[in-house]
């Protein structure tokens, strides 16, 4: 496997596909996460798939699958901004469910509120119809440095 830092430098230089970063992570492949880059803007996609269904009668997506998708999106997003990329460790993850996630593709975008030396604060928003109507919003903190224990 290519070193993480090398891969990230190649992604930044446009020499490698962002998807290769996601495909390193077994759980991300399990969910089927994809990424679409438009310039520097990244939109993450959770394609509709039987395996991410929760409530079968609606049918609605499993809230846990949506949360895992958003957490992974944030991890990739931070990695791309780190000078010395190391896989961030999730400290906490808080999600608000605003609307039912219907059985359709889900999109997510991230914004880093603060990228400190040790800790990053990230906001993640996920939508299906349009980004003005998010189905979930989440806030998470990540530990960036192993030295911080």
């Amino acid at each position: 496997m290519k070193a993480l830092k090398t891969l990230i430098e190649e992604c930044r230089a446009g020499e490698a596909d962002y998807q290769s970063l996601i495909d390193r992570v077994p759980y991300a492949r399990f969910l089927g996460i994809q990424v679409v880059a438009q310039g520097d803007e990244l939109t993450f996609v959770l394609p509709k798939h039987d395996n991410v269904v929760g409530n079968p009668t609606l049918p609605a997506l499993h809230g846990g699958a949506v949360a895992g998708f958003m957490e992974q999106a944030a991890i990739i997003f931070i990695l791309l901004q780190m000078g010395e990329p190391r896989v961030p460790k999730t400290i906490d993850f808080t999600i608000d469910y605003l609307r039912a996630g219907l059985f359709r593709d889900t999109y997510a975008e991230c914004s880093v509120t603060r990228l400190g030396r040790r800790i990053a604060n990230v906001h993640i928003s996920a939508w299906q119809k349009n980004r003005q109507e998010p189905i979930t919003i989440a806030r998470a903190h990540f530990l960036l440095s192993d030295d911080a224990g």
Binding site: M1, L4, R24, V25, P26, Y27, A28, R29, F30, L31, H62, G63, G64, A65, A67, G68, F69, E71, Q72, I75, V87, T90, F93
Partner: peptide, 20 residues
């Protein structure tokens, strides 16, 4: 194996734990 979040450590992804 397919629920691993960090391929360098083999630790389970927070998302799988969250879903449970």
């Amino acid at each position: 194996e397919d629920l691993v979040g960090n391929p360098e450590t083999g630790v389970m992804h927070g998302g799988a734990i969250f879903a449970m």
